[in-house]
């Protein structure tokens, strides 16, 4: 993982801690629904807060299933 992706992961972890109360370690392999136990309200919150944090819009993304997918999606948008 590149250093940028590491920073993105840290940023997501910060958002998850602040807005979802997630206290564990955040690894790219974790699945949002199954492992982070996000219901629809929480996943909306995560989406919006991650967007605010990184100042990106993810609404053209499809199939973000894992934390790693989310990192990749944000990285793509930051490159634009």
């Amino acid at each position: 993982m590149s250093s940028t992706e590491g920073e993105i992961l840290d940023g997501i972890a910060e958002v998850a801690r602040a807005h979802l109360g997630w206290e564990g370690e955040l690894r790219p392999g974790l699945r949002l629904v199954e492992d982070l136990e996000l219901d629809s309200l929480k996943s909306l919150t995560l989406a919006l807060e991650v967007e605010n944090h990184f100042r990106v819009y993810l609404d053209q993304e499809a199939g973000i299933v894992t934390v790693g997918d989310l990192v990749q999606a944000i990285a793509r948008h930051l490159d634009d």
Partner: peptide, 8 residues
């Protein structure tokens, strides 16, 4: 509309 995170 679809949710933005998770399975489609």
């Amino acid at each position: 509309p679809p949710v933005r995170l998770g399975r489609l």
